[in-house]
Simulated assay, not measured.
Amino acid sequence: MIGQSRTDAVSESPRASESIGSSSALSLDDIYHLLQTQRRRDVLRYLRTADDRVRLRELAEQVAAWEQETTVDNLSSDERQRVYISLYQSHLPKLDNHGIVDYDKDRGWVEPTPRAEQLHPYLEPPSASQSPDRWPRRYAGAIVCCGLGLAAVTAGFGPSAGLVGAWVVLVAFAIVTSAHAWSTGAFDRYLTN
Rank of each mutant, 00 (worst) to 15 (best):
residue 137 R to N: 12
residue 23 S to R: 12
residue 104 D to Y: 01
residue 182 W to P: 00
residue 90 S to K: 14
residue 13 S to D: 09
residue 148 L to A: 08
residue 192 T to Q: 14
residue 14 P to W: 02
residue 27 S to Y: 08
residue 166 A to N: 07
residue 31 I to H: 01
residue 69 E to F: 06
residue 44 L to R: 05
residue 132 P to K: 07
residue 6 R to S: 09
residue 186 A to H: 14
residue 88 Y to I: 01
residue 86 S to C: 06
residue 28 L to S: 14
residue 33 H to D: 15
residue 13 S to P: 07
residue 119 L to F: 07
residue 78 D to N: 08
residue 110 V to F: 00
residue 146 C to I: 07
residue 134 R to I: 15
residue 102 D to V: 08
residue 74 N to G: 02
residue 123 L to Y: 03
residue 189 R to L: 06
residue 11 S to A: 11
residue 52 D to Q: 10
residue 74 N to V: 04
residue 52 D to P: 01
residue 77 S to C: 09
residue 54 V to I: 12
residue 110 V to R: 01
residue 111 E to V: 03
residue 92 L to K: 02
residue 66 W to E: 15
residue 49 T to G: 09
residue 174 A to I: 06
residue 33 H to V: 11
residue 78 D to T: 09
residue 26 L to S: 04
residue 5 S to W: 10
residue 141 G to N: 02
residue 56 L to D: 03
residue 190 Y to V: 10
residue 98 H to K: 07
residue 23 S to A: 14
residue 80 R to N: 09
residue 193 N to P: 10
residue 188 D to C: 03
residue 130 Q to K: 05
residue 74 N to L: 12
residue 143 I to K: 00
residue 84 Y to M: 01
residue 6 R to M: 08
residue 177 T to E: 13
residue 30 D to I: 07
residue 172 A to R: 02
residue 100 I to F: 02
residue 49 T to R: 14
residue 44 L to H: 05
residue 157 F to Y: 12
residue 151 A to H: 02
